[in-house]
Amino acid sequence: MTFDNEFFNIGYLDRLSYRDTVVHRLDPRSKVIVTMLYVLTVVSYPKYDVTSLMPLFLYPILLSALSDTPFLLIAKKVLIVSPFAVFIGIFNPFFDTGTIDLWRGIQISAGWISLLSIMIKFTLTISAALLLIATTSFPGICHALQELGIPALFTSQLLFLYRYIFVLMEEAMRMVRARDLRTFGARNIGITVFVRLIGLLFIRTVERAERIYQAMLFRGFHGKIFSIKQHSLRPADTAFISLSVIVLVVLRLFNLTDLIGRFVQGILL
C-alpha cells in the first residue's frame, strides 16, 4: 500500500538528514540559499537548451557524494514524482512540430528537444530539493527560514507540523490497518468510510492539540516560544556560498558544454 511506502520514504529521508558529514555540518542557511540560487539558475535556461544544462549535474552529484546520500534514492524519487511535468511536457512534441537539423540530415522535432529540456530541469531541481532535506534537518531549515526573515509564528507552527507528522501518520496508518483487517483486505476505501476515518482522525488530532497545549502551559508557556539555538556562519559556509555563486554564474555565462564539444570536435575532425 502506498501509505506505508510514503511513510517509510519520509522517515528515511528524515533519518538521512540527521547524519554527520561535511555537507550536513554546513549551516542550514547557506544550504537553503545555495539551493534556491541553483534552482533559479537551472530554470533560467531557455526552453530548447539541453546540452548546456549538463555541467549543472555537478551540483547534485557532488553534494550527494559528499553527503553519502544514496544515489538510488534520489534517482527513484525523481522517477516517480513527476506527474505534472510529464503530463504537460509530453504535449510539446505534438504541438511543437518544427524540426531541427541535428547533424548531416538527422532531424529531430523541436518539441522533443524542449520536452527533454523540461525533464532535465526537472531532474536537476528535484534532486536539489531532495538533497537539501537529505542533508539538513527540518528544524535546521526552519531556523534558517526564520533567520532569513520568515515570521516566527509561521516557522513555529511549521515545527509543530513536522513534530507531529510522524505521530499522526502512525495514527492514521493504524486506523487504516484496523479497517483493512475488518474488511478482510478489501483494498478500496469508499468515500463514506473515508469521511468517517478522517473525521475520527480529526477529532483525535484536536484532542491531541489540546493536550499539547496543556503540556506547554505546565511548562510555563505564556504565548511566546523562545529559541535558544544560535547559528553562526562559519568560514566553511562562506566558502560554500561564494564558490557556488561563482560556479553558477560562470556556468550560466559560458556554455561549457559547447566549448568542450567544439574543442574535442576540432581535435577529432
Binding site: 501509505f3 507540523l161 501518520m169 492514521a172 468515500i191 488530532t205 499539547i212
Partner: peptide, 21 residues
C-alpha cells in the same frame, strides 16, 4: 500555534489515505 501545527500534520496524514472516487 500548536493547533495549527498539529492540524497541518493531520492534513498531511489525511492526504496519504486514498479512497475510491
Amino acid at each position: 500555534i500548536p493547533l495549527m501545527g498539529v492540524l497541518g500534520a493531520f492534513i498531511f496524514a489525511a492526504q496519504m489515505i486514498n479512497f475510491t472516487i
